[in-house]
Design a protein around this nucleic acid. Sequence first.
DNA 1: TTTATTGCAAATTATTTGCACATCA
DNA 2: TGATGTGCAAATAATTTGCAATAAA
Lengths: 164, 164
Amino acid sequence: MTSQESEASRVGQVLAQLSSSGHRITNPRRHIVTALVQAGGHLTAEEVATAVQRRDPSVHLATVYRTLDALERAGVIIHIHLGHGRAIYHLADSSHYHLYCQQCGSVREIPQSEVDDLFALIGRAYDFEPSLGHFAIIGTCGRCIDRRGSKGNRSRGTSPESIA
Amino acid sequence: MTSQESEASRVGQVLAQLSSSGHRITNPRRHIVTALVQAGGHLTAEEVATAVQRRDPSVHLATVYRTLDALERAGVIIHIHLGHGRAIYHLADSSHYHLYCQQCGSVREIPQSEVDDLFALIGRAYDFEPSLGHFAIIGTCGRCIDRRGSKGNRSRGTSPESIA
DNA sequence: TTTATTGCAAATTATTTGCACATCA
DNA sequence: TGATGTGCAAATAATTTGCAATAAA
């Protein structure tokens, strides 16, 4: 199976799910799902719109938002927040958390299982059930830490500098 | 020392810090700092403005934002994000993280030291330095978990800010 | 045909900014 | 006095919504 074939079938699957949850299949929706599948990763609504508009410039950003919403309610995609700004969307096929670097904007995935134990501890200690899925873990990635260290060599690490 | 006295001295301290970091002391700023000190906890910019305007209605919300910004750059206050919506501000005197319940909107503080070890593990494993200070840990507080468990439905009558 | 969906423009929310005037050091 | 700070209105940024026109089932 070539990558185009598997992409096409994935698009079909997603559209089928959308359809079976009571929604109609339209041209804008086909393009939006295709963009999501082809990206393979995380896209902002605006990035989805840009990709879609390369194929059909008439598709409006508002339609993208509405479709992303419909896809999410149908359970095929998920959106998460990277701190301040926009949300990013991805297919709901793998359960992972996100590490978002405030410096360089990179997003990395970490498998859910690896962190759940840690957060379960917080939950037990504070009678609180953290939901890390919906918000990224904000911080600084290793590359940016290195870059910072080689330059000004600023006090970081244990010091309470996390106020940005 | 009465509570009014200690409040007043705290206000004085904060204003002194603001002054010594090169800013001027004005009437709006006095009121804003007082509101922050009296609240003792976490306030949104709008809540600060409301409190301030009870004493001086002419103080504009934009001034509140600008002053909060100045106070933050002077190192006396900190703001953190509760997920989607607004930011909350508090005095920078205690280092703590925040547990934000999406259901009921409650915010609880947890001492920084207790969670740092856990997050250091993530950092080591993924070459990533999480900065939890600036964003709340989102989730569901124990009371809301219980409520959800016992009633088994989604009616959350007490939620002040129901954020998806 | 009938209801969902779309495009567009206008509204929202939280915050920021340009500007002319007021005020603190 | 002269840089800072203030009130106000208008600008952002990301997203949502009302509505009349269109298209899917």
